[in-house]
Design a protein around this nucleic acid. Sequence first.
DNA 1: CAGAACCGTTGATATTTGTCAACGGTTTTT
DNA 2: AAAAACCGTTGACAAATATCAACGGTTCTG
Lengths: 193, 193
Amino acid sequence: MYKNLLAYINQYANLPLTSEEETLIRATFQPKKLRKKQYFLQEGDVCKHVGFIIKGAMRQYSVDDKGVEHIVHLYIENYWAGDRESSIMLAPSKYNIDAWEDTEMLIITRAEMLDLMEKIPALVKMIRLMDERNAIANQRRLSSTISNTAEKRYEEFAENHPQFIQRFPQHIIASFLGITKETLSRIRKQAMR
Amino acid sequence: MYKNLLAYINQYANLPLTSEEETLIRATFQPKKLRKKQYFLQEGDVCKHVGFIIKGAMRQYSVDDKGVEHIVHLYIENYWAGDRESSIMLAPSKYNIDAWEDTEMLIITRAEMLDLMEKIPALVKMIRLMDERNAIANQRRLSSTISNTAEKRYEEFAENHPQFIQRFPQHIIASFLGITKETLSRIRKQAMR
DNA sequence: CAGAACCGTTGATATTTGTCAACGGTTTTT
DNA sequence: AAAAACCGTTGACAAATATCAACGGTTCTG
């Protein structure tokens, strides 16, 4: 259960954990199982936990006035799910996060994480690296959204994230890209020839 | 000259700097002046420095096949300008950064910054906070870009960033929002009534 | 196993946004 | 002071994308 998480930390931090540190991590992160469709976070609630996905698939989305879902993040194994803004500001979240497949996570509160970071240097290093990669990925996604047509955005996405294409149905991918399912269907039809 | 930077660090880190630390900072950050239109970074170059803006205004943008500029960031006083991806990966940048007004900056290389962070805890704290805020801001921007119409995006932007509306001409704002200057002009006309 | 929910596709049409060209008023440069 | 560059606006039209409704095939669920 904790194997994936520990491997993830080791890989990112590249600072082997002592066995005390490992014990501390095992004691702090709590296992949590979600059935398909179950909420991890609901709009209006404050996001208390961030979760590392051991197995499964999840999505994060907002719902607009017309009831349309806008998917902002997709998560699978080895991703962290949560709403940082809500978590840090202790403010009600504008997003929902739910399980797209049955999912197993290891969850931790922000306070616990800050506490662990004081005790485990590898975690600090990991977070810094994650933040960096995250900033780069966000930059790319933003840039692509602003500059490219829907078609090019889909191509790039399919190229860079084939795992997601396999795991999530097309209408979810469409929403993630900011287009309708019909438009995506037509783009794919065109691209075939 | 260094006053703004030191104030910025103090405010973010909320850990008063010792006078040794302050001296070290003054010795490491180098002043740099840019005339209007002058490049700070050109596409294809590796981004060596990040710069803290003391006075002035800058923009970061890519140029597509057709020669159209897509503005991804706008910067004014107390902002940090640079291409993190290029800087970290030591890869040629896809972006240009140039001065929109005559600009004074304090610049530092990534290596120097990492070195300073080892010696000055306040800087580590500052960076972590900046990363957090940045992640939140990026999330919001992305969410807005995916979910909202051009009109709503402009409204939100004008509300949250009046300083930019005053500093940059309309066609720059339009590009930043991912729309054409004509569309923005029409949106504003409509909004007036 | 039968009904319901889900999924991708297609057609017809509406809306949003982009493109191109032109204009007058500024501001900057020479 | 004249010329050039820049800026916002407008009109006519084109292209991209959304909306709405319907369909058949699949998968889920009671």
